[in-house]
């Protein structure tokens, strides 16, 4: 306890110092000892990452221009009378196959039930949901005595494997055909006199029902990070505003949010990456049926159910390309911070 207390004191004093001496170069001169030493420290990390991530990624990009088992160019998979993009044939399939291009209206409709449309729904709803719940809960739990317990409850779903989560939500979404509903949600609805709903096969609510499970799992993560950020907002500033007669709502929006905005950016970025990579939930709950497919699950389907390595890898490359803008935002934020340090 004493040790961590001391740490935080050091941290605070250091932070203040930095603010006063802002035009300093990022690294003190004295610490530039040799050009070789830094690479020693980087070596283990660079080695494992090159081997486990970079090399397979290059391999993947190569395979995405090949046919289903990687033995010939993708151009050979074109069929007569069908559109063909040559060696980019897998990309044509990945980008256009789900869309109905007969009319703009049909295209619009088919886009929103495709894996791309669903992934966008996921990003918007899930990121908004987790960050909102996480932030609201962090702010409110800060003011109650049972804070630790409350946060543990919100964090708990993170400790549950996807298999477990699948079973858990079966007992929430279950749709029974007899009078007895063993699903909690439908039981509540029928006891209020309503008709039970088949949550996971009714389009379009089914996608949102799976997103809710995602929010349930990941809100704890956002809450934890945001709660930590909130604790760093100096009490003096908030108290000063309150003394000036600002309403709690104003204090929150005008003082707290601006201060923790960098953290919110971090959380949003991390969540977007998570959502784009997330396929387990869809796989466990609907298997991508009933127009709930997402890009990551489609990649899995092409790779391991249809055994089309070329198409699967093409979807993967598209997935990676889709994430790059968010990574760019993240890095930009870093550069700005480093510059002002």
């Amino acid at each position: 306890m004493a040790a961590s207390q001391a740490n935080s004191n050091i941290g605070m004093s250091g932070k203040r110092k930095r603010k006063q001496a802002s035009p300093n170069p990022p690294v003190p001169q004295i610490m530039k000892q040799g050009a070789f030493v830094p690479w020693l420290y980087l070596l283990p990390a660079l080695a494992v990452m090159t081997f486990f991530i970079v090399y397979p990624m290059i391999n993947t990009i190569g395979l995405s221009f090949m046919n289903s088992d990687g033995t010939a160019s993708a151009a050979t998979t074109c069929r007569d009378g069908q559109p063909c993009w040559g060696v980019f044939e897998n990309y044509r399939y990945a980008l256009t196959d789900e869309f109905n291009t007969s009319s703009p209206a049909a295209l619009w409709k088919s886009f929103w039930s495709s894996s791309y449309g669903n992934t966008i729904k996921w990003i918007v709803v899930m990121v908004f949901g987790t960050v909102t719940v996480g932030l609201a809960f962090a702010v409110l739990a800060d003011r109650v005595k049972y804070e630790a317990l409350a946060k543990a409850v919100l964090f708990m779903p993170m400790a549950i494997s996807f298999v477990g989560a699948g079973v858990i939500w079966k007992f929430v979404y279950d749709y029974g055909t007899s009078q007895t509903q063993i699903g909690l949600l439908n039981s509540i609805i029928t006891s209020l006199g309503g008709r039970p709903v088949a949550w996971l096969s009714t389009i379009p609510i089914n996608t949102f029902m799976i997103v809710i499970v995602g929010i349930w799992i990941w809100s704890g993560f956002c809450m934890t990070i945001l709660a930590a950020a909130l604790k760093s907002v100096p009490d003096e500033i908030i108290e000063a505003a309150r003394v000036d007669g600002a309403a709690e709502w104003t204090v929150f929006w005008k003082i707290i949010v601006p201060i923790i905005l960098p953290t919110i950016t971090v959380v949003v970025t991390t969540m977007v990456i998570n959502v784009l990579k997330l396929f387990d939930l869809v796989y466990v709950m609907t298997g991508g049926n009933f127009k709930t497919d997402v890009i990551a699950n489609r990649m899995y389907t092409e790779m391991y159910k249809n055994f089309n390595v070329g198409r699967g890898t093409a979807v993967a490359v598209i997935l990676v390309v889709a994430i790059i803008p968010f990574i760019y935002l993240n890095i930009k934020r870093f550069l700005e911070q480093e510059a002002s340090r």
Partner: peptide, 18 residues
């Protein structure tokens, strides 16, 4: 039938009944 026909067929009939 190989090449992912099976899962497409399952999805197809689910869509039909839906």
């Amino acid at each position: 039938i190989p090449g992912g026909f099976g899962s497409a067929e399952f999805q197809g009939i689910s869509e039909f009944v839906n």
